[in-house]
């Protein structure tokens, strides 16, 4: 039996998914996700322990090509879409914090 989702669970997955949520959103999503997960419980009745999982409709294998030079996306065109650029690189906020 899969457990019901709690508000703490929702706050945890929101953090994992890098989504800042308001208190109101937390309440709302807890109710709504519980309802969807409740519907998904109909699967629990199935005896499928021995059934292999399917991740993809058709068997996939690696697709290789010759390692030949070919044109790639234009760098300036790509960088033009970025929120912040410096010296032909994507500029991002600080990753490491100061030592405490």
């Amino acid at each position: 039996m899969a457990p019901t989702i709690s508000k703490q669970d929702v706050a945890h997955v929101a953090r994992l998914a890098r989504l800042a949520l308001s208190e109101e959103e937390l309440e709302l999503y807890t109710t709504q996700l519980a309802s969807v997960l409740g519907h998904a419980r109909d699967i629990e009745a199935l005896d499928i322990a021995d059934v292999p999982p399917t991740a993809h409709p058709f068997p996939l294998s690696n697709v290789l090509r010759e390692d030949e030079p070919r044109p790639c996306l234009d760098r300036d065109e790509v960088l033009a879409a970025a929120p912040e650029v410096e010296s032909a690189r994507f500029r991002i906020p600080r990753i490491l914090s100061e030592a405490p």
């Binding site: 998904a40 699967i43 629990e44 199935l46 499928i48 059934v51 292999p52 999982p53 399917t54």
Partner: peptide, 9 residues
């Protein structure tokens, strides 16, 4: 995991 098995079924 269960959902993927349903896909097989």
């Amino acid at each position: 995991g269960k959902a993927q098995k349903v896909r097989t079924l």
